Amino acid sequence: MTALGFLYPGHSAEDDYPRIEQLLGSDIRVDLAHTDVGEDEHRVDALRQLGAPERLAAGVEQLRLSGAEAIVWASTSGGFVHGWEGAHEQVRALARAAGMPASSTSFGFVHAAKEVGAARVAVGATYPDDITALFAEFLRAGGVEVTAVRGGPGIGTAAEAGTWGEAEVLALARAADTPDADAVLLPDTALHTAAHLPVLEKELGKPVLTANQVTVWEALRLADRRVNAPGLGTLFTREPIVQV
Rank of each mutant, 00 (worst) to 15 (best):
D224I: 01
Q62V: 13
P198K: 05
W84C: 04
P198G: 12
Y8I: 15
L172G: 07
H196T: 07
D182N: 11
D40G: 08
A119K: 14
V121G: 09
L204G: 01
P9Y: 12
V72T: 04
H192C: 09
R48D: 03
A112V: 10
H42E: 14
A68L: 03
D16A: 04
E201P: 02
A87G: 05
G165P: 09
A194D: 00
R150N: 12
L220K: 03
V110Q: 08
V110A: 14
T2F: 02
I20V: 08
P9K: 10
S12W: 01
P9V: 09
D180K: 04
V121S: 07
V214L: 13
G51L: 09
E160F: 03
V123E: 09
R150L: 14
L170W: 00
F109S: 07
G86S: 09
G25S: 11
A195F: 01
A190Y: 03
E203C: 04
A181G: 01
A195H: 06
T147R: 06
G154M: 12
S104Q: 08
P179V: 10
P53L: 12
T163S: 12
Q213V: 15
M1R: 01
H11Y: 08
T76C: 08
G38R: 06
R19I: 07
R48G: 07
D45T: 15
D177C: 04
T105L: 10
E218P: 02
L7T: 13
A183M: 11
A52P: 00
V244F: 13
E61K: 12
A171N: 04
E239F: 08
K202C: 01
R48S: 06
S77A: 15
A46R: 10
N212K: 08
R92E: 14
S26W: 01
Q243G: 03
R150T: 14
R48W: 06
G10M: 07
L50K: 12
P207N: 13
M100K: 06
V149P: 01
E14D: 05
S103L: 08
A219R: 02
D36H: 13
E145M: 10
D130T: 01
A93H: 09
F80A: 05
D224C: 01
E85T: 06
G79T: 15
A158G: 07
G151Q: 13
V72G: 04
E14V: 14
E21F: 02
G117T: 15
V227E: 05
A173T: 12
V37D: 02
Q90W: 05
V149E: 10
V227G: 03
S77N: 11
P230H: 09
E218W: 02
L63P: 00
R48L: 15
R43A: 15
P128T: 07
M100S: 10
H111N: 14
T147G: 01
E85F: 00
Y17I: 03
L222N: 08
V81C: 06
V244K: 01
V44W: 01
